[in-house]
């Protein structure tokens, strides 16, 4: 954890809400040290959107009809942000998949008045749908804009409802939803491993986004396991690794590996975007 993250953790642990002390990631017990996370290699990511549709298919995300996009109320638990740099003929597009960062010090968790969102003991930022009362405090507090409010009940005209995944709750109007790291897949693998009396194998759990990614830019892992291939990758590529909006001290569970651009002119104060994104 970076020093800024430590400071943020210390501040967060002092926060008290409704008479309860909000536990930080450092205080939450992680049995066997599991912390689910992801390594995202921006040098592999092409922005092809395969992860976006994979997520929607797996997680019963409501159809983003045109009106929803126009209202900026489209739900994409994972989205590809595109940033422009420079102008023609030297314009460059930069892509980055953005999803819930499953922060160790999640700003969304401390503001929920009903504990609908909390940090579980495997590092997941969890949303409990039937606790949520729709204050949207968490969405406002999330610096990554990855929490989505259900302004309407979702509709799938028959027989399209046949495709719905029975492992995933269909969310109703008035509550927040977000990336779960495909917790249903994690649970399934855990049950299987327990039944077979063994440990979960490295790489055995794959969220839908990582499974589909043609270039293997997204790799899911237990980031506390130094033996896992992604953790080793992050270690080997330490010079390229960073976390999103690191200075907020949120301690994200997603490690990004920087895009490599051999022609990039690197300046201390240079930003990777001339135009902005969601």
């Amino acid at each position: 954890m970076s020093s800024s993250a430590n400071e943020a953790a210390a501040r967060a642990s002092a926060v008290s809400e409704m008479g309860r002390t909000i536990p930080t990631d450092a205080e939450v017990p992680h049995p066997e040290g599991v912390r689910w996370g992801m390594v995202v290699d921006l040098d592999r990511c092409t922005g092809c959107q395969a992860c976006v549709v994979a997520c929607q298919a797996e997680n019963n995300i409501a159809l983003n009809e045109e009106q929803r996009v126009l209202e900026r109320r489209a739900k994409t638990w994972i989205r590809i942000e595109r940033y422009w740099e420079g102008e023609f003929p030297n314009a460059k597009a930069r892509f980055i998949p953005v999803l819930c960062q499953h922060c160790g010090n999640a700003p969304c968790e401390t503001v929920c008045p009903v504990w609908a969102t909390y940090h579980n003991n495997e590092g997941l930022n969890v949303q409990v749908y039937n606790r949520c009362i729709g204050t949207r405090f968490c969405a406002n507090g999330c610096p990554y804009s990855v929490r989505y409010f259900n302004f309407w009940n979702p509709e799938w005209p028959e027989p399209m409802n046949n495709q719905l995944n029975p492992d995933v709750t269909v969310r109703t109007k008035g509550i927040i939803e977000k990336c779960t790291f495909c917790v249903q897949r994690i649970n399934r693998v855990q049950v299987t491993a327990k039944t077979e009396g063994r440990e979960i194998r490295s790489g055995e759990v794959q969220p839908a986004c990582a499974q589909s990614c043609p270039t293997s830019a997204l790799v899911f892992c237990d980031i506390n396991d130094p033996e896992s291939a992604p953790a080793q990758l992050a270690e080997a590529e330490a010079g390229r690794s960073y976390t999103l909006l690191e200075h907020f001290g949120t301690d994200p569970g997603i490690i990004y590996l920087k895009k490599v651009d051999p022609h990039a002119e690197i300046h201390e104060d240079e930003h990777a975007h001339a135009g902005a994104h969601a």
Partner: peptide, 24 residues
């Protein structure tokens, strides 16, 4: 236009570095 990008300066964290780059 039904895009998911936001126009410049529509977010207060627009000056943050989102996509970090190295020249190798």
């Amino acid at each position: 236009l039904p895009t998911i990008e936001v126009l410049p300066n529509a977010r207060n964290d627009v000056e943050e570095v989102i996509v970090q780059v190295t020249n190798g």
